[in-house]
Design a protein around this nucleic acid. Structure first.
Lengths: 237, 237
DNA sequence: CGACGAGTTGAATGACGTCAAACACAGTGG
DNA sequence: CCACTGTGTTTGACGTCATTCAACTCGTCG
């Protein structure tokens, strides 16, 4: 599963314009604006094989990038090293949202972990479209706002909470959605670990720690929450 | 200087509508959009004394907040504790930009360190104005995008760089702006430390470390960069 | 002068990452 | 059916970096 880093890909594996609908509600917010169809006209969809470089850190960001389906790892690729994965994204999700708007460069390397489909929205036609469709522009503002909030929260966690507290928060929020206090881990533990800003070894230890304290029960990829209150307390204020 | 946390302030110390121009170029980007004047009609300006609570974490964010002038500390206020300052902001700067757009809550407490003037833009009229003035909406998106990039960079730093590297990057970027390789620290070292995600003690040690290695020379609040290349190297790739 | 806050320094503690070995499990080919 | 292999996880030992606690200095203000 650990995919080697492929050499630079010319951006043209399978280039095809698509007018068929892209998943805008999932990307821009629940109430799909009717104008979103406009974006389909701008979007360029392409497919990439596993191991391909989707984004390269430091290159100019001329287009917004959406991961339609498949999985990519984001992080810093060092020549020789496998890839320091900060987070693992599964489509549909924004892959490069902010950088193009700020005329900046991509902030991290993104490597396809499976075969993926991505859509690109070149920034200049997009800007023009947003000026013509103000409601859409507001949706982008809101989407970016959610991103800011997400990052802000993660920053606070990393600064002020230790590994146990971060795991506790994560389990709490994951369990909050479901009816039963049982969660089945969807991705590899090493990916969960890097998402939480710790090593797989530490995650393992923290899992054991929490189960020894009777807060959770772990069995393979199944985690049962035994003491939600104590868990929330450990997660912090 | 360490200001005690004042009890809850009703939001009406000095309420005054102002049609006089607010510093939009500094807030929304260099090329001031002509439409920005529209925002003045929405803005409510108020003044607060030192020690006042400007934002309270967890309260609903119904208006964007701009710090016009003065200084506020952002962080988590604990009853009893002085204030864990994540960062110190000096106006003009956005104080609460993202949360209102996402119908969210303020993510941190903000306490006035000096007497301050803030402007508030209630979200509903603002949304309406953005729909009428799409260019303005795009400016907000861009502003938010810069915020995302800033947060992303900070997150990477915190995850992957040790204290010395973080300090080196900070000094490097601070010194980049000025003609001479000398910088005078504008805020207390303890605030710089928490901005860099370390304790004042660690900052002090790192300062000494760097000067022992001949990279910088420290004298009180004056830091002279002696070896910019080595400093940049230490800062990482 | 004494009190206070900011900064520095040292020693002790602790949290987490790194390295290495062992283990579990699935897939594969003999 | 059974070794064999590769991947993912667990566990332990160990080292390192940074925080914590405490003492001490320095400058300012009463």
């Amino acid at each position: 599963m650990n995919v080697a880093i492929a050499p630079a890909e010319p951006a043209s594996s399978v280039s095809a314009r698509r007018t068929s609908g892209l998943p805008w509600p999932a990307l821009l917010g629940p109430q799909a604006p009717a104008d979103a169809a406009e974006l389909d006209k701008i979007a360029l969809v392409r497919s990439l094989p596993a191991g391909a470089t989707v984004l390269r850190r430091g290159t100019a960001a001329r287009a917004l990038v959406v991961l339609l389906d498949g999985q990519v790892g984001c992080g810093w690729a060092q020549p020789g090293r496998p890839l320091v994965t900060d987070r693992l994204l599964t489509g549909p999700v924004w892959l490069g949202l902010a950088a193009p708007f700020a005329r900046g460069q991509h902030g991290c390397d993104a490597i396809a972990q499976s075969s993926v489909r991505v859509a690109e929205l070149p920034i200049d036609p997009l800007r023009a479209a947003l000026v013509r469709h103000p409601v859409l522009a507001v949706r982008f503002t809101e989407t970016m706002a959610r991103e800011v909030i997400r990052l802000d929260a993660r920053l606070h966690e990393l600064m002020h909470k230790d590994a146990a507290a971060r795991l506790a928060t994560w389990i709490t929020t994951q369990a909050a959605d479901r009816p039963q206090p049982v969660l089945r881990l969807a991705s590899r533990k090493r990916d969960i670990a890097s998402q939480l800003g710790m090593t797989p070894e530490t995650l393992s230890r923290m899992m054991r720690n929490l189960s020894e304290r009777g807060l959770i029960a772990v069995e393979g990829y199944t985690v049962r929450v035994l003491d939600p209150t104590a868990l929330q307390g450990l997660a912090g204020p």
